[in-house]
Amino acid sequence: MSSGSRTKRRRLEPEERRAEILAAARRLFGDGSYASVSTSDIAKAAGVARPLINHYFGDKRELYLEVVRQMVIVPAPVVENLPDTTMEHRLTIGVGHWLDVVERNRRAWLTAIGHEAVGRDPEVDRILREADEVAADRVLEAALMTGVTEGREQLRAMIRSYGGMLRAASREWLVRGSLDREELRIFLTGSILHLLKVTYPELLAGKLAAGDGDSRPPV
């Protein structure tokens, strides 16, 4: 049986093999720490030879950074698969999906955002900044607002700030226990909807009041 299992593993496609290694690394880094987990540990958990880790990821550091990236960057299919419905419904589904992912990968998520709290890892910080930029695109797409031009940079800045609040709120849920999942869902959904439907139009109105006053905020 063990021989058959090994044969089956050898037949995995490269992307499947890579995904297995990432899944194993996510579990181990979530359960321990970067320093306590070795590439040998990850190879054993993934059922692969250690050189395969170097082949796919270079070294432990690059693998760790890829785990962080995987945890914090919202993949395109999350938005692409949303139903053709209202902004409110699409954003509610999006927040629910994010909660599902974080709940399934609680320890790995906290490990991924842990460096942000102490600010000691510039490479992780760079990934978090990248995640905020990607999240801004995903939110605009989910909210059916990709065509927005007026005040776009300010809107993106506010959405990026929402991303920082989202990470802080996840600690309230997972670490402090001061919010349960449903309370967090209501808070996050309500906050992003208020930002898009109230705060953003108010910002535009302020810009218009300071300008020529001929334009109108988008409806």
Rank of each mutant, 00 (worst) to 15 (best):
I192W: 05
E133C: 15
E66N: 08
D137H: 01
D84M: 12
P218C: 01
R160E: 02
D214Y: 12
S36G: 10
T146P: 00
F187Q: 10
R120E: 15
R107D: 15
R69F: 04
R90S: 01
L65E: 02
M1Q: 14
P51F: 06
G151F: 04
M87Y: 03
A19P: 00
T86E: 09
D41H: 08
V74S: 08
V95P: 08
Y162F: 13
G94Y: 14
L179W: 13
P75W: 03
L179E: 09
H97Q: 09
V101Y: 13
E103P: 03
L91F: 11
L128Q: 03
G114W: 11
E103I: 13
L174W: 03
M165Q: 06
E62A: 04
E182G: 08
G151D: 02
E13R: 07
P14T: 00
R17I: 00
E202N: 12
D59C: 02
F187Y: 14
E182K: 00
L144W: 10
V78K: 13
E123W: 02
V134Y: 08
W173M: 13
F57K: 15
G151M: 01
E150H: 05
R156A: 15
R160I: 00
E88L: 11
H194V: 01
L208Y: 12
A112R: 08
S33D: 09
R181C: 00
V118P: 04
L82Q: 13
E133P: 11
E15G: 01
T189Y: 06
A108F: 14
R6G: 05
E150L: 03
H55E: 04
L188V: 05
S2E: 13
I53D: 11
I93C: 10
D59A: 06
R160D: 00
M165T: 09
